[in-house]
Computed example of a mutant assay.
Amino acid sequence: MKIFEQKQVGTEQIPLGYVHSIETFGSVDGPGIRYVLFLQGCQMRCQFCHNPDTWQQGVGTEVTAEQILTDAVQYQAFWGQQGGLTVSGGEALLQIDFLIDLFKKAKTRGIRTCLDTCGQPFTRQQPWFSRFEELMRYTDISLVDIKQINSRKHKQLTGRHNENIFAMLAYMLAHNKHIWIRHVLVPQRTDFDVDLIRLGQYIKTLAPIVDKVEVLPYHTMGVTKYTELGLDYPLGAIRPPTPTRIKNAEKLLNCAAYTNYQAYPGYLEA
C-alpha cells in the first residue's frame, strides 16, 4: 500500500493529503450539516461509480490537516449540535496517516468527525492495523458502504472481494464504533431479493452499532465523466431502480428499524 508524502514543518513530519474536492455545506454525508472532504484514490472499480476521476492515487491538491481545519472552521456556525467534518473519497482509508492527523487535530478543536468508507483497504496486518485503531479513537461515526453481500458478485461488481470489509465491521462491532450503513441499489447488480434478505440478516448481527441504514438508488449522473476520461461506461443501458424496488429494498433491509440517529443531539425530523 502506498505511503503518501509528508511535509517537513520545523522538526515535525506532517502527512500530506491529496484532495479531489471539498463541499462546504454537505447535508447527506453524515449527521447534520458537514464540511465534506473528498480524498483522491480508490482501488475498487465499482461498475456504478459516478466519480471515476477519484480513482488515481497520489494526485490532486496537496493539503495539510491545518490547512483543511483553518478552512473548515469558517463554516462551523452552520453545523449545529450534529454537524462537523466528514472525510470521503475515493477511498479515505488509503490516506490513513493524513486522516489520523486531521481527525486528531479536529478533536482538539471540538469538531465532530465522520469517516465515509467502503472498508476495502482494511487489514489486520501491521503497521496498518495499529494506525486504523488509532484513527478509530478520533472517529465519532463511520458511514460504511456495503456494495454486495455475496462475495462472488462483489468481486464482479467492484474488482475486489469483501471478506476484509466484513472483518472491519466485526472490529467496529467489538469496539462499539457506531455506523451508518449504505447500500447502492443497482438493477441487475445488487437488486436481488435473495441478496437483500441476506444483507438485512447480516445487518441485524451488527444492530448494537447501527444507527441508520440507507438505500441509495443508482443514478447515471456520472456517465459524462467516463466519456471525458475516455472510459467505457460499465453499466450500459441499465436504468435507475423504480420506486417500487427502492421501497422493497428498504423493507428487506429493515431500514425503518434503525433510528438511533434520531437521538443525536439537535436532531430534527425532516
Rank of each mutant, 00 (worst) to 15 (best):
residue 223 V to C: 11
residue 151 S to G: 07
residue 188 Q to A: 12
residue 169 L to M: 11
residue 172 M to L: 07
residue 263 A to C: 03
residue 35 Y to N: 08
residue 132 F to L: 03
residue 40 Q to S: 12
residue 104 K to H: 10
residue 235 L to V: 13
residue 172 M to D: 07
residue 179 I to C: 11
residue 4 F to R: 11
residue 110 G to N: 14
residue 6 Q to T: 15
residue 161 H to F: 06
residue 227 T to W: 08
residue 162 N to Y: 06
residue 126 Q to R: 12
residue 15 P to L: 04
residue 160 R to N: 14
residue 243 P to I: 15
residue 123 T to H: 01
residue 148 Q to S: 02
residue 47 Q to V: 09
residue 210 V to P: 10
residue 255 C to Y: 03
residue 236 G to F: 13
residue 44 M to S: 04
residue 113 T to D: 04
residue 106 A to T: 03
residue 197 I to E: 12
residue 75 Y to D: 10
residue 57 Q to M: 15
residue 8 Q to Y: 09
residue 68 I to S: 04
residue 184 V to L: 12
residue 120 Q to G: 05
residue 215 V to F: 03
residue 121 P to R: 00
residue 173 L to R: 15
residue 264 Y to F: 14
residue 188 Q to L: 13
residue 161 H to I: 05
residue 232 D to H: 05
residue 209 I to M: 01
residue 178 H to L: 05
residue 183 H to D: 03
residue 238 I to F: 05
residue 151 S to P: 01
residue 229 L to Q: 01
residue 156 Q to D: 15
residue 229 L to H: 12
residue 152 R to D: 12
residue 221 M to K: 14
residue 136 M to N: 08
residue 17 G to L: 08
residue 196 L to K: 11
residue 82 Q to R: 10
residue 265 P to I: 15
residue 214 E to I: 11
residue 255 C to M: 07
residue 195 D to M: 10
residue 18 Y to F: 11
residue 61 T to W: 02
residue 118 C to S: 15
residue 257 A to E: 08
residue 133 E to C: 09
residue 56 Q to M: 02
residue 256 A to R: 07
residue 98 F to Y: 14
residue 144 V to R: 05
residue 203 I to A: 08
residue 208 P to A: 09
residue 197 I to W: 13
residue 180 W to C: 09
residue 129 F to L: 04
residue 13 Q to W: 01
residue 31 P to C: 01
residue 80 G to C: 04
residue 148 Q to F: 05
residue 62 E to G: 10
residue 250 E to R: 08
residue 195 D to V: 04
residue 133 E to D: 02
residue 1 M to L: 13
residue 137 R to Q: 15
residue 170 A to N: 12
residue 139 T to H: 05
residue 84 G to C: 14
residue 263 A to R: 09
residue 101 D to A: 06
residue 89 G to E: 02
